[in-house]
Write a protein that binds this DNA or RNA. Structure first.
Length: 884
RNA sequence: AGGCGCGUAGCUCAGAGGUUAGAGCGCCUGCUUGACACGCAGGAGGUCGGUGGUUCGAGUCCACCCGUGCCUACCA
């Protein structure tokens, strides 16, 4: 530990010389200067020789590099950096890696648009392919390996831009720990963890109805859904009498799914339909005889109280279909259009196959939306449509990145079990320390609302492949029952190019051979393992033992249901523990209308331009004003305030460091009182930062600092210049240096550039590796706590304020001499102020100062304006004390 | 529809049951003071969303309501 006390640079002969303070200190250029020095000196390099309890490990959110960094990133990453810097100064070795989320669909989309290409997995690799100079229309088709090359190329370029911004902002990341979610290590961890789940039966694959985006042509997970209100309409449709049953009227918003209808359903207690249960009715147009069934999920209040069950219109259909053991008649293909079907077969029965075929053929090849319009015409012609459709607006599930409503398509997908572990996940949520605590509710809402296991397979290209192969039987049929898995040592692998052990590549895709799993993993299946990826899990056991479970997961509240949830789940399965002990949830940056700042709303601001305009310290000041979990208004005004604070630190420091001598014991009550107040601030700050209350610390430190500048510095100035003797000056000097040292360290996590700049004028090493200030060191310099001195400082500042007010009201210069000041106050407070009389009379330019007991009041008589006493003349007869 | 936040000066926000509710920005007035004009000093500006309750005492605690944002649900 270095000496926390102020120590001037010493010349070769042991003679002290002045500190290296520039004549005109400025903020300009500090970002470039210090980020280069920090990198060269390895200030933020992680020392892995430390033990677990000496390490503070952060599971940094990897930003999606396919987008651009926006002000929200700057905001939340600053919060984490403040915590990281605090922990580092407290003596913890901070493990602070950076990750880039470059895998998955967002990257694919960016590559498609940026280069004007489209992936066609059927094409062969073209080693000489060069992307067109500007994106052509229509896009060029390229092979999957070529496409992945382009993804890799573009993400590397994007990541350079991101890193530059982060360094400019001053994040104290160890850049040698950077990872990418598409990188080899992330792939190895994802595949290995998946194989463990497979082995334990926690991952499984089945052919089942799955939420499906028809544009991206992939399955999606519950966590990736969002509801959007869209216009729709209720259609009243008559189902024909079948056997003994009368006709029934249903209401539906999706009449196009009548060919996929496999039953009608009503509530078991619904008297209107009780007589029908067990009988059957006939679908209009297609003449399919379907049963009428009872199920408690049917809502008697909605529509006509009886609904059609289609395969599949929504998730309730899936539930009914499963629980009532109904057949499948699927009509929608993966691209969202109606597929070709032959009526009159066992699967597609009809009382009039020719009529059914004729009606259905008019739907083939259409999207849901177009098929709906077409079938409404057909229903109207046939008389089955009763009245006109009744327009409504209702919420429909969309893939969050998608443009059309989700369909439910039956396909073979991988799932990770979740719902049977609901209780244990809730328990882990209660163990985790949430900052702020109320964010846990979001987690619980999500876990309680889970409807099914987590679908983790995606029918896409740029991502982590599932590390499994399947045997192909002699008849050419793929056997999904017992997948072949690779040896863990061979990971990462790609089953589309690697062959299973003991097989030759020529056996791929032929009868008796093998087939690779064609899918890639959900991006969250990788992101849920960031703690394992950064910690060297199953690769570097020594590192793993030192940093896992980690200390902090910082993230925004919108991804509690995805990233936080899935990370807790994976850690529970793999390790039976939480992945970290704390989570700090940052809010959003909102514009003054309380709308989230986002690209789609067109209200984003380029972060680098802001950093250049207001300085990184200024922007960080604004960001640090956002408490955990609280949405914060984008406010350049606050950035200006932060910038002004940084400038003030430069100038006040210049004054404090304007002379390094004399030095000596802190004996003056004013000095001891100031140090006592500062010690109190330091204690409170440490407690608050331990509780992740970084905003309160900044606010308190700031207001202390302005008081320090406006009052203490003014009160002590004359004495410090030697007007009251050598010892009195030495007391001031020593106190000033101690205070500056502590204040710089207090501000260092927030304003890393300006504090480092000032620190470099007079202290060795980096302020960011200096020890966090302590009350003890300040009280030590003060020679003990001096609460009376602290109160005297406050009282003197109050009187000084009255004198300034008088001068301001009379529109006189502040250097105007106060001929006579009479202070009325309690006896106790008068006694306090008497202790600092000489400082007060010097700062207030008071010629005569009297006290009376009584209610607080200050009477001031200023020197007449006509006969201005010069400042020099006034200073000569200021106090009764002799000049040295 | 349920849940979780938020509502205090024109704006952005502090106020952990106890003097007369605070800060910064903005606005107005003055001041080139030996660190700082990227500065200094001062001033004006409030029915603390509403109603009721608990309490000696409520911006703070409770209930209901209003507004606002988000989470979850609602999809026949």
């Amino acid at each position: 530990m270095q000496d926390p006390g102020p120590e001037p640079n010493r010349g070769a002969g042991g003679r002290s010389r002045a500190f290296a303070v520039p004549d005109k200190p400025a903020l300009e250029g500090l970002e470039e200067k210090w980020r280069a020095r920090w990198e060269a000196d390895g200030v933020y390099r992680f020392d892995r020789s430390k033990r677990r309890n000496e390490i503070y490990a952060i599971d940094t959110p990897p930003p999606t590099v396919s987008g651009s960094l926006h002000i929200g990133h700057v905001f939340s990453f600053t919060h984490t950096d403040v915590i990281a810097r605090f922990q580092r100064m407290r003596g913890q070795e901070v493990f602070y890696p950076m990750g880039w989320d470059d895998n998955g669909l967002p990257t694919e989309r960016r590559v498609q648009n940026y280069y004007g290409v489209r992936c066609d997995p059927a094409l062969p690799y073209d080693p000489s392919f060069v992307p067109p100079a500007s994106p052509p229309k229509p896009p060029v088709s390229v092979s999957r390996p070529n496409f992945i090359e382009l993804c890799a190329k573009l993400t590397v370029e994007d990541e350079k831009v991101f890193e530059h911004l982060w360094r400019y902002l001053g994040l104290s990341v160890d850049w040698s720990l950077t990872y990418a979610t598409i990188g080899r290590e992330a792939q190895r961890v994802s595949q290995l963890a998946f194989l463990h789940l497979l082995e334990r039966g926690l991952a499984y694959h089945i052919e089942a109805p799955t939420l499906w985006d028809v544009d991206f042509r992939t399955a999606v997970a519950q966590a990736e859904l969002e509801d959007r209100d869209v216009p729709s309409a209720y259609h009243r449709i008559a189902f024909g009498a079948g056997g003994a049953s009368p006709a029934v009227v249903i209401e539906t918003t999706r009449p196009e799914l009548i060919p996929a209808c496999v039953a009608l359903v009503a509530h078991p207690d619904d008297e209107r339909y009780k007589p029908l249960f067990g009988s059957s009715v006939v679908t209009p147009l297609f003449g399919v005889e379907i049963p009428v069934r009872a199920h408690p999920l049917a809502d008697p209040e909605r529509g006509s109280g009886i609904a059609m069950i289609c395969t599949f219109g929504d998730l309730t259909d899936v539930t009914w279909w499963r629980e009532l053991s109904l057949p499948v008649r699927a009509v929608i293909q993966p691209d969202g259009t109606f597929r070709r079907v032959t009526w009159g077969t066992t699967q597609w029965p009809s009382t009039d196959p020719a009529k059914a075929q004729a009606a259905y053929d008019r739907l083939v090849g259409l999207s849901s939306q177009k098929a709906r319009a077409r079938i409404v015409e057909l229903l109207r012609e046939s008389g089955a449509l009763l009245g006109d459709p009744r327009p409504i607006t209702h919420a429909v599930k969309f893939y969050e990145k998608g443009d059309r409503p989700l369909e439910i398509v039956t396909s073979r997908q991988w799932f990770i079990k979740t719902i049977e572990f609901r209780e244990r996940l809730l328990e882990r949520g209660r163990e985790l320390r949430w900052h702020p605590p109320f964010m846990r509710t979001r987690f619980e809402n999500w876990v309680n609302g889970l409807t099914g296991d987590w679908c983790v397979s995606r029918q896409r290209f740029f991502g982590v492949p599932f590390p499994v192969w399947y045997r192909i039987g002699a008849d050419g049929a793929v056997d999904y029952g017992s997948p072949i898995t690779p040896a863990p040592s061979s990971l990462p692998m790609d089953p589309s190019s690697d062959a299973p052990p003991g097989c030759s590549p020529s056996q791929r895709g032929v009868p008796g051979g093998f087939a690779g799993d064609p899918d890639i993993m959900d991006t969250w299946a990788t992101s849920s393992l960031t703690p394992q990826i950064v910690s060297g899990w199953e690769r570097d056991p020594d590192l793993f033992s030192r940093v896992f479970p980690m200390d902090l997961r910082p993230q925004a509240h919108d991804i509690i249901r995805t990233w936080l949830f899935s990370t807790v789940l994976r850690s529970e399965f793999e390790h039976g523990t939480l992945p970290w002990t704390n989570t700090a949830i940052s809010g959003f940056v909102v514009d003054p209308d309380r709308k989230k700042m986002s690209k789609s709303k067109g209200n984003v601001v380029t972060p680098l331009a802001l950093l250049q305009e207001h300085g990184s310290d200024g922007v960080r000041y604004w960001a640090a004003g956002g408490r955990p979990g609280t949405d914060t208004t984008f406010d350049p005004g606050q950035m200006k305030v932060g910038r002004r604070l940084a400038i003030k630190i430069l100038n006040a420091s210049k004054f404090v460091l304007s002379s390094s001598e004399p030095r000596g014991a802190v004996t003056e009550p004013l000095d001891r009182g100031m140090l006592t107040s500062l010690a109190r601030l330091v204690d409170e700050s440490t407690t608050d930062l331990d509780a992740y209350e970084y905003t309160r610390v900044l606010n308190r430190a700031e207001s202390f600092f302005w008081f320090f500048c406006d009052n203490y510095l003014e009160l002590v100035k004359s004495r410090r210049y030697g007007d009251h003797g050598h010892e009195a000056a030495a007391s001031a000097n020593t106190a000033l240096l101690a205070a500056l040292s502590s204040l710089l360290r207090l501000f260092a996590p927030y304003l890393p550039f300006v504090t480092e700049e000032v620190w470099s004028w007079w202290q060795p090493g980096s302020v960011h590796r200096a020890p966090w200030p302590s009350a003890g060191e300040l009280i030590g310099v003060a020679g003990g706590r001096d609460e009376a001195g602290s109160a005297a400082l406050d009282a003197a500042a109050l009187i000084l304020g009255e004198i300034r007010k008088k001068k301001s009201e009379e529109q006189r210069p502040l250097k105007t001499v106060a001929r006579h000041v009479r202070v009325r106050d309690s006896k106790e407070r008068i006694a306090l102020v008497e202790q600092v009389r000489s400082d007060l009379t010097a700062a207030g330019l008071i010629e005569r100062l009297d006290f009376d007991a009584g209610e607080f009041a200050v009477d001031i008589e200023l020197a007449p304006a006509e006969a201005p006493a010069s400042a020099e003349a006034a200073a000569g007869k200021l106090s009764g004390e002799p000049k040295p």
